[in-house]
Design a protein around this nucleic acid. Structure first.
Lengths: 163, 163
DNA sequence: GATAAAGGTTCCAGCGGTGGTAAGGTCAAG
DNA sequence: CTTGACCTTACCACCGCTGGAACCTTTATC
């Protein structure tokens, strides 16, 4: 089985398969007389394993360990679970971060989208609780976008000019 | 103001500031007689803008456009909103992907974590609806982890040996 | 004045996982 | 025999930095 067929069968591109071989994630494939890589069903099987693990978001480093565990008949269930749980924790962190970002951005978009009148409630919010340095830095992206979007064109603040 | 102070004031590391200068995101800083970069308050201000935008997850490419808009007095509100909305769409996609992955992984963890008895409901799920190739590939990561975790040690399937 | 520490400077390499390119060898079919 | 599809190695580029090496400048201390 050539690399192209192995790629199609596993879902990993030929390019990436070579990369995995170079980096030692998978052992070097057997070569034919003419130098072509030859993949067995077992090789494809391993590649598919990798493909699925990557789709679950496991890093190559984690997959390396998963593969080791896979081939180790004396593995402990706890090891696998630990990997999965650790990965889950990472995903949880990413999710929280992403959601926080979305909340902020959504807030911004919702208020930026409004009419062209100068009164903008979010300005007060920024100047109040979540302001911190925004109070001192009236041209931070958040503040700028909001204040600028909220003002009519003839009252545009002197952006890019004030400091 | 030296690069270290600018870094501390903006929240961007000195290394990254140089990187931004090299890549043209920010204009080259003025140099002192001895070759040190000198940053004005306006420069720091711009850096802080960039820092906040990045914390909102905007790519450097997007930030480049945001900076252009920032400095363009004749900008259109729609342009800014379009950028923000496009970015929001990207975040939405990432969120959905992340959540789907989490759901799968959570499912796996929950069932892998159970006792050591061989009966595992998720096996039936895998063999049924969401199985597709899993039916043909009993050693896919999902199937493997689940089946292996579900079986007692003396009944471990011939993993890494079957194909 | 010497010295050392703390800053600055440049350039080069690397992370992961590709995508693209080039320049060539090989295989199957017409 | 030629054509075209596939394979090979090898390199550069991307994202957004980050670290290190090797060297220069400023500042502080003895």
């Amino acid at each position: 089985m050539n690399i192209g067929q192995a790629a199609q069968a596993s879902g990993i591109s030929a390019k990436t398969i070579r990369y995995y071989e170079n980096t030692g994630l998978i052992p070097a494939a057997i070569r034919t007389g003419s130098g072509y890589r030859s993949f067995s069903a077992k090789d494809v099987h391993t590649l598919r394993f990798i493909h699925r693990a990557r789709r679950l978001g496991f890093s190559v480093h984690d997959i390396r360990q998963l593969l080791t565990l896979w081939q180790d008949k004396n593995r402990a269930s706890a090891d696998v679970k630990a990997l999965a749980l650790a990965h889950m924790a990472v995903l949880d962190g990413k999710l929280a971060e992403l959601q926080a970002t979305q909340r902020t951005l959504q807030h911004l978009i919702a208020h930026c989208e409004g009419d062209d009148r100068p009164d903008c409630p979010i300005l007060d919010d920024l100047a109040g609780e979540g302001a911190e340095r925004l109070r001192d830095e009236p041209s931070s992206p958040l503040h700028w976008m909001v204040s600028w979007c909220a003002l009519p064109a003839d009252k545009h603040p002197p952006i890019g000019r004030e400091n």
